[in-house]
Simulated scan of single mutants.
Amino acid sequence: MKPLRKDIKPGMLVLFVQKKHQASGELTEGIVKSILTSAPSHPHGIKIMTVDKLVGRVTEILDSEVD
Rank of each mutant, 00 (worst) to 15 (best):
L4V: 06
K47L: 12
L15W: 00
K6L: 10
K53G: 06
L4I: 03
E26W: 06
K9T: 09
P10I: 03
M1L: 12
E26Q: 13
G56Q: 02
D67V: 12
T28K: 12
K9W: 01
V66A: 10
E29G: 04
I8W: 02
I61E: 02
K20Y: 02
H44E: 15
I61M: 04
S24Y: 01
L54P: 07
V58Y: 00
T59H: 03
H21T: 04
K53M: 11
S38V: 13
T28E: 14
K47W: 00
Q22M: 11
H44L: 15
L15R: 12
E29M: 07
L62E: 01
S41L: 08
D63Y: 03
V14R: 00
V55A: 06
V66S: 11
H21V: 01
V51Y: 05
P43E: 03
P10H: 04
P3D: 02
P10V: 03
V66H: 05
L15Q: 14
K53A: 13
K2H: 11
S34Y: 00
S38R: 13
A39V: 07
L27I: 01
I61F: 00
I48N: 05
D67Y: 10
T28D: 07
L4D: 07
P10D: 03
K20S: 12
S24W: 01
Q18P: 09
G11Y: 01
M12F: 05
K19I: 04
M1H: 11
I31G: 07
G45C: 05
S38L: 13
S34A: 11
V66M: 10
R5V: 03
R5N: 12
T50W: 04
K33E: 15
D7C: 08
L13I: 13
H44N: 15
Q22I: 12
L13G: 06
D52T: 15
L13H: 07
R57C: 14
D52P: 07
K33G: 08
K2N: 13
F16Q: 04
A39I: 03
V51W: 03
I48A: 07
D52Q: 15
E26M: 10
K47Q: 12
S24E: 14
V32A: 06
L54C: 12
V51H: 08
M12S: 09
H21Q: 15
P10S: 05
V58T: 04
D63L: 14
V32N: 05
A39L: 13
K20T: 09
K53T: 10
K47N: 02
M49Q: 14
K33S: 15
E26K: 13
T37M: 10
A23N: 12
I46Q: 02
F16H: 09
I35H: 06
R5I: 02
R57M: 05
H44M: 14
S24C: 08
S34M: 08
K33H: 11
V55L: 02
V32C: 09
I61P: 08
M12A: 09
R57I: 00
V17L: 07
S38F: 09
P40H: 06
E26G: 07
K9A: 09
L36I: 12
V32M: 06
T37N: 10
V14K: 00
T50G: 10
V55Q: 14
P43H: 06
E29H: 02
S34W: 01
T28P: 06
P40Y: 04
E60H: 10
G25H: 04
K6C: 11
V58C: 07
K47T: 09
D52C: 10
I46D: 02
V14W: 00
G30F: 01
Q22F: 07
K20L: 06
V66T: 14
D63E: 15
D67I: 12
H44R: 14
D7S: 11
